[in-house]
Simulated scan of single mutants.
Amino acid sequence: MSQLASMMILTSGAAHAVVNAILKSGKDKMSSRALIDGSSAILVLPALFFLPPPHGAWGWLAASFAIHLVYLICLIKAFEGADMSAAYPIMRGSAPVLASLFAVVVLGERLSASAAAGVGLVSAGTLLIASGHRTNKRMLLWALATGASIAAYTVVDAAGVRASPSAPSYIAWVFLSLGFGIGAIFAIWRGPAFLLAARAEWKAGLAAGALSVVTYGLALWAYRLDDVPRLAALRETSILFGLLIAVLVLKERAPVLRIAGALTIALGAAILLLTP
Rank of each mutant, 00 (worst) to 15 (best):
L10F: 00
L263Y: 04
L176Y: 02
I188M: 15
A232S: 12
V155H: 02
A210R: 03
L225Y: 11
N20F: 08
R110E: 14
M1I: 14
G59T: 00
V155Y: 01
I76G: 06
P54K: 02
A115F: 03
E109Q: 13
A143S: 13
A95N: 01
A152N: 06
G209H: 05
L69C: 15
L61N: 07
A167W: 11
T275N: 10
I9T: 10
T237G: 04
P276A: 14
A262M: 05
D37R: 08
G147R: 00
F50V: 14
L243R: 02
A63S: 14
W60M: 14
I185R: 03
A208Y: 06
H55A: 10
I73C: 12
E252R: 08
V249W: 15
L263Q: 07
A198E: 11
H68V: 13
A260N: 05
L240F: 00
A152I: 07
L225H: 12
I90W: 02
H55W: 04
H68M: 14
T11K: 00
R92W: 00
S39L: 13
R33Q: 13
A34S: 15
A187M: 10
P229L: 05
M91H: 00
M1H: 15
V19K: 05
W173L: 05
L195T: 07
S114L: 15
H55R: 09
A246V: 04
L218W: 04
A222D: 10
G160L: 03
S114W: 09
G160D: 02
A163E: 08
W142K: 05
G108N: 13
V214F: 07
R235T: 02
A21G: 14
L128V: 11
T126S: 07
S39V: 13
S177I: 12
A266S: 11
S131D: 04
E80N: 13
V161E: 03
A115W: 03
G13H: 00
R224L: 14
L107F: 07
V44G: 05
R110K: 11
D157M: 12
V161H: 03
A262G: 15
A103G: 06
V174G: 03
A184G: 10
A151S: 09
A266F: 06
H16G: 00
A66I: 14
A167G: 14
A143N: 04
P46H: 12
R162G: 11
R110G: 14
L178Y: 07
G125Q: 05
A17I: 08
A262V: 01
G81C: 04
S212L: 13
W202S: 12
P192R: 10
G179H: 04
L176V: 06
R235N: 00
W202H: 12
A167R: 12
A143G: 04
H16A: 04
R224F: 12
I150M: 05
L121E: 02
A266Y: 01
M30W: 10
